[in-house]
Write a protein that binds this DNA or RNA. Structure first.
Lengths: 229, 229
DNA sequence: GAAAAGCAAGAGCACTGCTCTCGTTGTGAC
DNA sequence: GTCACAACGAGAGCAGTGCTCTTGCTTTTC
């Protein structure tokens, strides 16, 4: 009799197994995940799944959190051990793109339109900020290392809001830097959503990686990370 | 006994009425549109709706085309009669934002994750390009009027693809200009999706319009429409 | 060992998209 | 004017969905 108890361990395994099968269904059938189909695949009654997830939404939430952490991890790993912030930013961007291309439905789950009637619970906002915090840290690092071209400061009410964010989440970034990081992140997510959701259809078809690189270099220039637009 | 016939006219009216009710349902219940609920609201049997739309997907397609045209129209109207291209671009961006804020579900319908199992038919790609072609025309206009700061040319395979697009859809734009227009469009859609889909939660909450303006000015700078980043 | 809590299964409810059939009604050819 | 035909609305029905409730069984806890 181990400390956590047999039942608790089995429960954890079962929970994980449900998520795995659910992810598989998500990858093939898209976002309209069927709890009954997942239960069928597991050889159990659909009602039994409700012992592990109170509702379909709760299962989706678990998958969303996992997805945020997955892409966050991949991004952080790609940014590590790079010579400078520009290389880290571009490597990170390509890593996120690879992750998204590898499982478009998971991308849609976290960065696409919210599932109807689904309200993101508090648990998700932590993992959700990993990528954007990573970008912010790169911007801040470039700034403190003197590798960031000066950009005019920002003013207005949104600048004050961003000052609060800078105070809370960074170790000395200005509102301008937070704004730059947010902008870069939204440029990244826009570029990827455009590619994955078919907005690029009939324009760039072959060399989408090259076009993505071009866009991310543009975003880096806008931030001040590079001097060549 | 008008030329189109009574039946044809009633059919057209009925088709429009179904779309109106469906749009209302979309605005309140989100993307999981229920054909039966729409039929109930119209006081008719659900099977009768199938006389007008062969499937739920076909109804969604009709709504998507209408939405593309609606936002396209609003964008074009906002860009008209502006003193210069920068003003037109910013006015257009804010118009698109207003349109999206006014009916987020329609925005999600066209720029969010594709509906599961839904494959956009050929009919949609025409209306879908209205906004981006508008941006391209603004860029081209600024270029021919000498109001566009020079940006380094682009190379690579995606540049060749964009050259084909430039040849087909513009009257003399370079691949670089098409790339700029695409980038600006994706920046716009990324900024709006981020705002609407909750990516900005707990950062910019109050002055989102100001932050959006900041981002669009950034995009304009990246294009070369303005010299102040 | 008894009581309590966790668990799986099945039936059932209300809902969905979609198909088929069956009368009815407007339409064009003669 | 008549008559065949296509369009139409309604209803029943099928297979699927999320979710709840009850009924037995097993594991944990006291």
């Amino acid at each position: 009799m181990s400390a956590p108890g047999v039942r608790a361990r089995v429960r954890a395994e079962m929970t994980e197994e449900i998520k795995i099968v659910a992810r598989r269904h998500l990858a093939t059938d898209g976002a309209n995940l069927s709890l009954r189909a997942v239960a069928r695949d597991l050889g159990m009654a659909s009602s039994a799944v409700y012992r592990y997830f109170a509702s379909r939404d709760e299962l989706l939430t678990a998958l969303i959190i996992d997805a945020y952490n997955s892409v966050g991890e991949q991004a952080e790993q790609a940014a590590r051990d790079k010579t400078d912030e520009l290389a880290a930013f571009l490597g990170m961007a390509h890593a996120v793109r690879e992750w998204a291309l590898n499982d478009p439905h998971q991308w849609a789950l976290i960065y696409g339109s919210p599932v109807p009637g689904y309200q993101a619970p508090q648990d998700t906002i932590g993992p959700a900020t990993r990528v954007i915090l990573l970008i912010a840290s790169l911007v801040e690092s470039a700034y403190t290392n003197g590798r960031l071209t000066e950009r005019p400061p920002i003013t207005g009410r949104y600048a004050e809001e961003l000052a609060v964010i800078a105070e809370r989440y960074t170790t000395g970034a200005t509102p301008r830097l937070v704004a730059a990081a947010l902008s870069a992140f939204l440029h990244l997510s826009g570029a990827l959503s455009g590619e994955l959701f078919g907005q690029l259809t009939a324009s760039v078809e072959e060399d989408r990686r090259g076009f993505f690189e071009f866009q991310m270099r543009g975003a880096a220039y806008l931030i001040g990370m590079t001097d060549a637009p």
